[in-house]
Nucleic acid binder design. Structure first.
Lengths: 247, 247
DNA sequence: ACAAAAGTGTTATTACTACACCCATGA
DNA sequence: TCATGGGTGTAGTAATAACACTTTTGT
């Protein structure tokens, strides 16, 4: 195995143009900050390493970026492997490249944050891989600089959610207005007025009210809504900005 | 030279822990999207390659990330080398990691955007390195995915400038209100009303009016102001947001 | 019948937009 | 004296924030 790898390095080295000759190559990884919203709480998926090295420590899930894939593809691959889900909202957060961040080897990591719709199915899936959902304020000590990644991811989520409707990526496709309000209250750690929230939200005209009600939250039941992506995209192109409250 | 590099690879390979054995290393570069504001125009510093490969082509300036420096340090190093300036505003934009983005070798690049205060001194410096300032709408064809980087950088500048006073990084430390307004009009491609702009700006209470006037723009002269960073930081910690107009 | 969450209107305050003229000065 | 850009105020409109009660329904 070692020999094969070495041969690969040698072969590759000869193929490269001279302008690369002086540069060093680095390990490049992706790490995923996966957010979920469940039980009225914003949570992050953390992973308990079941193999050495760092066995037993909590960590974000990640992977090296392979030679034949982009960082985005690597992120999607990781998400698929550990949640079973395709088609997840994922965006680059930032890179982590401190020289000493990984004591094992010089390795930079591209942090990506992802928002997933929590259902029983994928919470179970997470458990299968030794993963666990932690409330954002109760994330344990993680390996390397992963706690920093979580902090940065949370801040980014807040910044982006203020102006883009990405919060909806955390809710089921059909959701109620009280659910959405709770989500925003949780993201921004701030109570909001029900009447003002509804009024502002509905005035944006990007929700479709359905005929169904969700009765899981109350006896009366709350109307379900869907997000009108097509309409939102049209408005966005005209310079419209989704914003549920003053910054 | 080749032999030395090869020996380095071999040596390094043995030092690495087994968990890295299967991963490939990649070239990691930084590329800088350098913005400047001069002559009432928002400009980008572009570099004409004077050596092979890609001799004669326009390109952003960049460098490989060396084994003993962070990406941020690499960016600062590049800025220092090509502008002679320390202490420049620089922030990570995003990574570019398409497999085929660089035909020479598998290489990812971390785009960083920087804002510099243009003065005669550093415009000259740029010229020395075969660099040239282009108005953002007139940037020529660049190598690789650098035009994409410019487009992304510009969009990011707009997004960030809407809510943070980074525009001030493009002006001299002492600046006039008409200068600032022109800058914003240029960034957002939008004429603004002088009275409303002033009123809003001054109501934020983060500018210090000086006793000097700048007479370069008119016979009457315009009062110079300084940004009150300390005050801004205090306000920001309290949740204040710098925003000069509705989104 | 009552507990628990859903849903609804009005008013005061604040922020925004639109708009036109005088001022100071150097040439 | 005149051309040039700097500087100022007001009024109409729109957005926001503060506030409490009724409705529905399962138990």
């Amino acid at each position: 195995m070692y020999l094969l790898h070495l041969l690969y390095l040698v072969k590759n080295f000869h193929l490269e143009e001279s302008r690369y000759a002086l540069a060093s190559k680095l390990y490049v990884a992706v790490d995923c900050i996966i957010f979920g919203f469940d039980d009225g709480e914003l949570k992050i998926l953390v992973f308990n390493r079941q193999v050495a090295p760092l066995k037993g420590m909590w960590s974000l899930i990640g992977s090296f970026v392979l030679i034949n894939e982009s960082a985005e593809a690597a992120g999607k691959r990781v998400l698929k492997d550990f949640t079973g889900l395709d088609d997840i909202f994922m965006e680059e957060l930032k890179t982590y490249s401190d020289v000493a961040r990984d004591s094992g080897a010089r390795c930079i990591s591209i942090g990506q944050y992802a928002l997933i719709r929590l259902t029983e199915k994928n919470t179970n899936l997470a458990a299968k891989y030794g993963a666990k959902w932690f409330e954002v304020s109760k994330v344990p000590d993680l390996v390397l600089d992963h706690n920093q990644m979580v902090a940065d991811g949370l801040q980014r989520l807040r910044n982006v959610a203020q102006f883009y409707p990405i919060g909806l990526e955390l809710l089921p496709k059909k959701f109620t207005i009280p659910q959405l309000q709770k989500l925003y209250e949780e993201i921004f750690q701030k109570k909001m007025d029900t009447r003002n929230f509804r009024k502002k939200l509905l005035s944006l005209n990007i929700l479709i009210q359905l005929d169904e009600k969700d009765k899981s939250g109350s006896k009366k039941g709350a109307f379900l809504y869907e997000f009108d992506y097509a309409k939102y995209r049209k408005l966005k192109n005209k310079g419209f900005s989704f914003s549920l409250f003053k910054v």
